[in-house]
Amino acid sequence: MAKTITSKVFVVRDNIDTDQIIPAQYLALVPTIAEEYEKLGSYALIGLPDDQYPEKFVPEGTTKTPYQIIIAGRNFGCGSSREHAPIALGAAGVEAIVAESFARIFFRNSVATGELYPFDSPQRLCDIVKTGDEATLDLDNDRLTVNGTTYQLKPLGDVRPVIDAGGLFNYARKSGMIASAE
């Protein structure tokens, strides 16, 4: 099944840590409680410094972002192991992040929850692309097209079917690794 995502992009730089994605003061929200999941989305990326990121990722008074694709530099998602981080982004409506590199636990949590597709990019796109640019992500061919240029991304490989299935448990059940819930 062909899958593409077309959206405005939000561009961030290196070392966007989990405190900038979802500040610690909001971690009392429990992601498996539906209304608290929604609330987490409304706070996504609220920890970014205002002077460097004047554009609000989630507009005030709303719970969703107009940006379904994030473009990032090195080490996106570093810091804490809080799963609240990929969940807050997913709850806000993010579908994919294209980064120069990811921190390990964030990458793993993105796959395990199935919240978003974490693509590695050989190019440093955060220097080329601006927030608000329109992009199309072709998941089947691992390509991002923005401002008329197409960039080849590193293939997601084995993790793609896990995210497609909606995360680790759905995938494990589909492939018969664990039994269905009661």
Binding site: I105, R108, N109, I178
Partner: peptide
């Protein structure tokens, strides 16, 4: 090593 809630939930069960 550190893990997220989903992995930890998996360990709780298995």
């Amino acid at each position: 090593t550190g893990i997220g809630n989903t992995d930890a939930g998996f360990i709780l069960g298995t």
